[in-house]
Computed example of a mutant assay.
Amino acid sequence: MEVKDFKVSISPREAAEVLEKHMDEDVLGEILDAYELQTEQVEVVMRLFEKYYMRSSNRATLTFLASNLDGVTHVHLAAGGGGQGMIFRFDWGAGEDFVELAEDALRQYMLE
Rank of each mutant, 00 (worst) to 15 (best):
M1A: 13
K4Y: 03
K7G: 00
K7H: 11
K7Q: 09
K7L: 11
K7F: 12
S9T: 14
S9V: 10
S11K: 13
S11I: 06
S11Y: 06
E14W: 01
A16K: 14
E17C: 06
L19P: 06
E20R: 15
E20N: 12
E20T: 09
E20F: 03
D24V: 02
D26P: 02
G29R: 06
G29E: 05
E30R: 02
D33A: 15
D33H: 12
Y35M: 11
Y35P: 02
E36I: 14
E36C: 10
E36M: 14
E36T: 15
L37S: 14
L37T: 10
Q38I: 10
E43T: 14
E43H: 10
M46Q: 12
R47I: 01
L48K: 12
F49P: 01
F49L: 06
E50K: 15
E50Y: 02
K51F: 06
Y53V: 07
Y53M: 06
M54K: 13
M54S: 12
M54A: 14
R55A: 03
S56V: 07
S56E: 08
S57Y: 07
S57P: 02
R59W: 08
R59D: 05
A60I: 02
T61Y: 08
T63I: 08
L65G: 01
A66S: 13
N68Q: 01
L69K: 07
L69D: 10
L69Q: 09
L69I: 10
G71Q: 01
G71K: 02
V72H: 08
V72K: 13
V72G: 00
H74I: 05
H74G: 01
V75S: 07
A78I: 13
A78R: 15
G80Y: 10
G80Q: 07
G81W: 08
G81H: 09
G82L: 10
M86E: 11
I87N: 11
F88V: 11
R89N: 06
F90V: 14
D91Q: 07
W92K: 05
W92F: 09
W92M: 12
A94M: 03
A94T: 15
G95Y: 00
G95E: 08
E96T: 15
E96V: 12
D97K: 13
D97C: 06
V99W: 00
V99H: 04
A102D: 08
A105C: 07
A105Q: 08
R107D: 07
R107I: 04
R107P: 01
R107F: 00
Y109N: 11
Y109M: 00
M110C: 00
